[in-house]
Design a protein around this nucleic acid. Structure first.
Length: 267
DNA sequence: CCATGTACCTGAAGGC
DNA sequence: TGCCTTCAGGTACATG
């Protein structure tokens, strides 16, 4: 379940390894793993990777001649550099560069996807066109929920409003804000709204600083683990004591997801 | 517009 | 041991 901080971690690692390398071969090892637009694997042969970017939970590789390789890891997708691949059973695609180095794409559940296309068609083909504001980083924008109605947790998970929040960080953001995940957004006052915005930025930035959460599936491109699971305040702590008030943390289902909250601290 | 349920998949974990 | 059920939760899509 890579979310924005986990994807950012991967992107930063890829800048150290594949930036400026030339694509030599792209192989689809499992049918359906790669979706092609008007460019396909062979069209990118010899093209240099000139930028590695993140947009929401999408990874974007920019190549010469306006070629684009876009990756969405969904639940269990992984990009693994060189010989750090652990379970070869789930390899779905393989990128080979002109110096012989390799990047594997693995995905146990096969929800993830790779798109190969040109810059012009990328947003439409990948669905990136529907993404909302980028909450952190150089390209971040201002976001607000004014005029928006609905359950707070559902709203935080909406990629068309804010891009990049998933289940773990949604729970962490609600806890830091002192807001119950089932609170309705239209009932938030100015102070609560400001605290919510601050929490969105803070929780995601902390996740990035700690290289993401490795609790179930996430590993970096060298098989390395994130550290942020050690600092989670609420997610995965059902039945344990709240760090703020010592009361027992509860878990319910909201927006179809396991949702953790402190009944005392969050209202 | 918003909420819910189902589908897509596999593996881990728990009950019996 | 083995079989069955549930859970993990990102996103598209159908439906109320």
């Amino acid at each position: 379940m890579p979310e924005l901080p986990e994807v950012e971690t991967i992107v930063r690692e890829l800048r150290e390894t594949i930036l400026n390398k030339k694509v030599w071969k792209i192989e689809e090892l499992t049918p359906g793993a790669i979706v092609c637009g008007s460019f396909c694997s062979n069209d990118l042969k010899g093209e240099k990777i000139i930028a590695v970017l993140r947009r929401g939970k999408f990874i974007v590789l920019e190549l010469g001649v306006s070629g684009r390789i876009v990756v969405h890891l969904r639940m269990t997708g992984r990009l693994i550099w060189g010989d750090h691949y652990i379970n070869k059973k789930h390899m779905r695609a393989l990128f080979t560069f002109s110096d012989g180095s390799r990047l594997f794409y693995g995905d146990v559940r096969r929800f993830g996807k790779i798109w190969i296309c040109n810059a012009k068609e990328m947003d439409q083909l990948t669905g990136m066109i529907r993404l909302g504001v980028e909450p952190v980083g150089k390209t971040h924008g201002a976001f607000h929920f004014r005029g928006r109605k609905g359950i707070l947790k559902n709203t935080l998970l909406r990629q068309d409003l804010i891009a990049g929040i998933g289940n773990i960080y949604a729970d962490e953001i609600c806890f830091r804000s002192g807001l119950h995940p089932s609170r309705r957004v239209e009932t938030l006052n100015k102070k609560e709204m400001d605290l919510l915005k601050e929490s969105i930025v803070y929780c995601l930035q902390e996740g990035i600083k700690n290289c993401g959460v490795s609790m179930s599936d996430f590993v970096g491109t060298r098989g390395n683990l994130g550290k942020h699971q050690k600092y989670l305040q609420i997610y995965g702590r059902a039945g344990d004591n709240c760090y703020k008030c010592q009361n027992v943390i509860e878990k319910v289902r909201i927006a179809g997801r396991g949702t953790h909250f402190c009944p005392t601290c969050q209202n």
